[in-house]
């Protein structure tokens, strides 16, 4: 009551200044702490026990990624001729008869064009398998068998001049395909500050 009654006068005379500063300081600290670490883990129990253990079958059902070292590649194999046939049926309408014409992403590079394609811009051959299997064809994603994906991978790598026509593409040799673009890549070097990169 005392405070409220005399608040305007106390504010005017500065008698409340120390109190105001204290309040501001406290609010400021709380704000800063909140910004920096909204929920410091030391305040949390070591485990909540939420969720349920994932079974090996559950993981296998969705673990479709393939790494550059080949981890994740499934059994199976593919050839260039079979890949060419599948490409004509399921891919050419978007990427062109020879992977150059489009209308969508160009797949085959050439010596005379700088246009980005697998042969001159993709740094890892395994990415091709991973991406075709997870997302292609655009209108029927995830519909290809592992062998079909190996066939297409073999065909597209061959069309880019990266593997021989008689290759039998599989989990052992796909990670070993040398991609010309790999050496071009470098990790982000922007760090803020004065420099423009």
């Amino acid at each position: 009551m005392y405070l409220r009654k005399n608040l305007p006068q106390q504010l005017a005379t500065g008698r409340l200044l120390p109190l105001c500063l204290l309040v501001l300081l406290a609010v400021g600290c709380a704000q800063k702490k909140d910004d920096a670490q909204p929920l410091a883990n030391k305040q949390l129990p070591s485990r909540f026990g939420f969720g349920r253990p994932a079974t090996a079958a559950q993981i296998a059902a969705v673990d479709i990624d393939v790494r550059p070292d080949g981890q994740g590649l499934p059994p199976g194999s593919g050839t260039v001729p079979e890949g060419r046939a599948i490409y004509a049926t399921k891919c050419a309408s978007c990427h062109g008869a020879t992977g150059v014409e489009g209308p969508y992403n160009r797949l085959v590079s050439s010596d005379t064009s700088r246009a980005k394609a697998i042969g001159n811009y993709w740094p890892y051959a395994t990415t091709l398998f991973d991406y075709i299997r997870r997302a292609m064809p655009f209108n029927a994603p995830g519909s290809l068998s592992n062998d079909e994906v190996y066939h297409l991978t073999a065909y597209l790598l061959h069309a880019n001049g990266l593997v021989a026509a008689d290759i039998e593409m599989n989990a052992a040799n796909l990670p070993k395909v040398v991609m010309p673009a790999e050496d071009l890549f470098f990790p982000d070097d922007r760090t803020g500050g004065a420099e423009i990169r």
């Binding site: 969705v62 673990d63 393939v66 790494r67 811009y121 890892y124 991406y131």
Partner: peptide
Amino acid sequence: RIEVSDQPFMTREETS
């Protein structure tokens, strides 16, 4: 899905 690893996976969206 989140798969924890000790290297990047080099997916299409971070390469091409």
